[in-house]
């Protein structure tokens, strides 16, 4: 459950705070949520990765759809590595996801007990 809670929290905060803060606010969001709801490294990474990644990808996809891919098509030529808007949308998700994932994991690590505790599974 913690995993889903983190994903939802990170996603919601990413969406709201990105409207007011620079792009790296996603790292702050991840770090904060990781501190607030710590867990295993993989689990926290996945929550950050999905929380930020889905929002970034979804928002990019929706902007692209509203714009009929017109500007994305132009920017693909500028960036020069693919001509498929969906690939770019996926890349956006990946970039946001990586930053979110590592930040959340880092936040959680700060809260990890000094002595190593046996993990009971991915979904705690």
């Amino acid at each position: 459950m913690k995993l889903f809670l983190r994903i939802i929290l990170i996603g919601a905060l990413t969406y709201l705070l990105s409207l007011y803060f620079p792009w790296w606010i996603i790292a702050v969001v991840g770090l904060g949520v990781g501190l607030l709801i710590p867990g295993g490294s993989l689990s926290t990474f996945i929550s950050g990765f999905l929380g930020v990644g889905i929002i970034w990808m979804g928002h990019a996809w929706s902007l692209d759809a509203k714009n009929d891919s017109q500007f994305t098509t132009i920017m693909l030529k500028v960036l020069g590595f693919t001509d498929d808007p969906i690939v770019l949308v996926a890349l956006v998700g990946l970039v946001g996801g990586l930053v979110g994932g590592f930040a959340t994991m880092t936040g959680s690590l700060f809260r990890a007990p000094v002595t190593k505790k046996k993990s009971s599974g991915y979904y705690n």
Binding site: S18, L19, P22, W23, W24, W56, H59, A60, L63, D64, K66, N67, Q70, F71, T72, M75, L91, V92, V95, G96, V99
Partner: peptide, 18 residues
């Protein structure tokens, strides 16, 4: 800078006008 540029909330997506 790819993070800034690709962020759908900040980057080039914001220059697309409908």
């Amino acid at each position: 800078p790819l993070g800034k540029l690709l962020s759908p909330f900040h980057g080039f997506w914001q220059n697309a006008e409908n």
